[in-house]
Design a protein around this nucleic acid. Structure first.
Length: 386
DNA sequence: AACATCACCAACCGCTGCGTC
DNA sequence: AGACGCAGCGGTTGGTGATGT
């Protein structure tokens, strides 16, 4: 649920408008607080026509009395057309829990593995929902009394030759993990497919006592479970090259075939940012028959899902705004409409292009997934190669 | 109905890292 | 080398609607 809240505090400024800063007239004119629909429209128009660039320039040139930082946040967290919006699915929640158990409060890295979700969104979701739920679970079971909050990942422990995913972290949160479906597959999902060694890894998990939906990494891309396999074949672009082994018997043969996967082979989403920098590029086409404003309205509607396949694709692949094919090497993102409000925009329009740093950070950052996999590879019950 | 409290989440703040000059 | 600008990140705040009393 997303509320389009308009800030009406009388003077038209943000609720937190800081008028104390009189040393800089320009700054004092900058709006703060909630964004108005007009501001949204301005920003979207600008991003559509000009694409992404220096945010302070964008703020200025778009006629927004906002700082560049604010524009950037608004775009990334709210206006970007590839945002999924809506409630988190169970699968996403599971994934978030797992990723958090490994990454800690590295929200951007978690978000990079949840297509269509922002770090802010995940962070809020975690703080408002998951954390509480986990604490409840903690209270219902014995757990570490340590109550300090922590941004560190939860620890993993060994239990009788089985990997038992994080029991408690420093804040005493006990992960609701009694099931063995919390296995290495979840860890593997966190890995960057840039690693050649991991991409060829074969991972076996041995315990699938429950038909864990989480095992379907594509379902998290689409809330409509009826269509999850459609999503698997036509869904979010760039899901390639990451093979995670055993599906644990969760998919029958037909499903496997439908997904176009070899038995025991599964392509999982790598880092979203990695997707975006993939050499295998995708056509992203937004078609609008009306005018720019309707395009904008469409983008602003939270059901737009330009980048999510859903039941409405009418089995027409051309309708898919986000064609996922590993062999698709044409990389144009096009905004099309009938009113000359179209432009070929660079990839950056959707915030894709500006993740170079992020990609680098993710690859070079402090979290060494390769190392993680090596660290865990000696777990006796985990039969995979690194 | 009125008020208090809770829950959610958009947006801000401060900090860090990186690139450029 | 250091100053500066910018992007990005994570923590925090505060407004608003929902819910409880």
């Amino acid at each position: 649920m997303v509320k389009d809240r308009i800030n009406n505090n009388g003077n038209g400024n943000g609720t937190n408008n800081n008028n104390n800063n009189n040393s800089n007239n320009n700054k004092s004119k900058l709006r703060k607080g909630l964004w108005s629909p007009e501001e949204d429209e301005k920003l979207i128009r600008y991003m559509i026509t000009k694409g992404q660039g220096c945010w302070s320039d964008i703020a200025r040139n778009a006629g927004l009395q906002r700082c560049g930082k604010s524009c950037r946040l608004r775009w990334i967290n709210y206006l970007r057309p590839d945002l999924k919006r809506g409630a988190f699915s169970l699968q996403e929640e599971e994934l978030i829990i797992h990723l958090h158990s490994i990454l800690g409060n590295r929200w951007s890295q978690i978000a990079a593995r949840l297509p269509g979700r922002t770090d802010n969104e995940i962070k809020n979701f975690w703080n408002s929902t998951v954390k509480k739920r986990l604490k409840l679970n903690t209270n219902n079971s014995t757990s570490s009394p340590n109550n300090s909050d922590s941004s560190e990942p939860l620890s993993t422990t060994m239990d009788n030759n089985n990997l038992v995913m994080p029991l408690t972290n420093n804040n005493g949160i006990t992960m609701p993990i009694n099931d063995h479906h919390h296995d290495l597959m979840s860890i593997s999902m966190c890995m960057d497919n840039s690693s050649s060694s991991t991409s060829s890894s074969t991972m076996h998990t041995h315990h699938h006592h429950h038909p864990m939906v989480f095992g379907d990494p594509f379902s998290m891309l689409n809330n409509n479970n009826n269509n999850q396999y459609e999503t698997a074949t036509t869904g979010v672009a760039g899901f390639h090259g990451f093979h995670c082994g055993d599906y644990g018997g969760m998919l029958d043969e037909e499903t496997t075939n439908k997904m176009g996967l070899l038995e025991g082979e599964l392509s999982l989403p790598p880092l979203e940012s990695s997707i975006r920098r993939s050499n295998e590029e995708e056509d992203i086409i937004i078609i609008n028959n009306e005018n720019a404003s309707s395009s904008i309205n469409d983008m602003k509607s939270h059901n737009n899902n330009h980048f999510n396949n859903n039941n409405n694709n009418n089995n027409n692949n051309n309708n898919s705004c986000f064609n996922n094919t590993t062999g698709n090497n044409n990389n144009n993102i096009q905004i099309l409409n009938n009113n000359n409000y179209s432009s070929n925009v660079e990839e950056d329009l959707f915030g894709f292009g500006n993740h170079d740093h992020q990609v680098e950070n993710l690859r070079m950052g402090e979290w060494d997934f390769e190392g993680l996999m090596q660290d865990i590879s000696y777990f006796p019950s985990l039969d995979f190669q690194v």
